[in-house]
Computed example of a mutant assay.
Amino acid sequence: MNTSPWSHHSFTAPFTTTGRAALVKAPPWHYAGWLLNVAFRFDADAAAALVPPAGPTHRDGLRALCRLAGLYGWP
């Protein structure tokens, strides 16, 4: 028997007595993920030979960031 004075059934806000307005359902939650950031500098003339033309180029931005990410969830 639950003797807690807390009458709300939500796990996350907004807390309600029915629990139907919660933004996230009650746990258990199962998530896995990964993130890889690679920041590098490059020579624009050397890189131009490796990639197809993409319209106007900006030769002053010789820095780049490549972000790879994966997030997986299951019930």
Rank of each mutant, 00 (worst) to 15 (best):
Asn2Thr: 05
Asn2Arg: 11
Thr3Ser: 09
Ser4Trp: 03
Ser4Asp: 15
Ser7Thr: 11
Ser7Lys: 14
His8Tyr: 13
Ser10Cys: 06
Phe11Glu: 08
Phe11Ala: 10
Ala13Lys: 12
Thr16Lys: 06
Thr16Ile: 01
Thr16Phe: 04
Thr18Met: 01
Thr18Phe: 00
Thr18His: 04
Arg20Asp: 15
Arg20Asn: 13
Ala21Pro: 01
Ala22Tyr: 02
Leu23Gly: 15
Leu23Asn: 14
Val24Met: 15
Val24Lys: 12
Lys25Cys: 02
Lys25Met: 05
Ala26Leu: 09
Pro28Met: 04
Trp29Gly: 07
Trp29Ile: 08
Trp29Phe: 15
Tyr31Pro: 01
Tyr31Glu: 13
Ala32Thr: 07
Gly33Glu: 00
Leu35Met: 13
Leu35Lys: 15
Asn37Pro: 00
Asn37Thr: 15
Val38Thr: 13
Val38Tyr: 15
Val38Met: 06
Val38Leu: 14
Ala39Gln: 12
Phe40Ser: 14
Phe40Asp: 13
Arg41Tyr: 14
Phe42Cys: 07
Asp43Tyr: 01
Asp43Pro: 04
Ala44Glu: 09
Asp45Cys: 03
Ala46Pro: 00
Ala48Pro: 01
Ala48Phe: 01
Ala49Ile: 00
Leu50Trp: 07
Pro52Val: 02
Pro52Leu: 09
Pro53Gln: 10
Pro53Tyr: 03
Gly55Trp: 02
Pro56Gly: 11
Pro56Phe: 09
Thr57Val: 09
Thr57His: 05
Thr57Pro: 00
His58Gln: 07
His58Glu: 07
Arg59Ser: 11
Asp60His: 06
Gly61Cys: 02
Gly61Tyr: 04
Leu62Asn: 13
Leu62Thr: 11
Leu62Phe: 03
Arg63Ser: 12
Ala64Lys: 02
Cys66Gln: 12
Arg67Ser: 12
Arg67Gly: 01
Arg67Lys: 11
Gly70Ile: 05
Gly70Gln: 09
Tyr72Ser: 08
Tyr72Lys: 06
Trp74Thr: 08
Trp74Tyr: 09
Trp74Ile: 03
Trp74Phe: 10
Pro75Gly: 15
Pro75Gln: 15
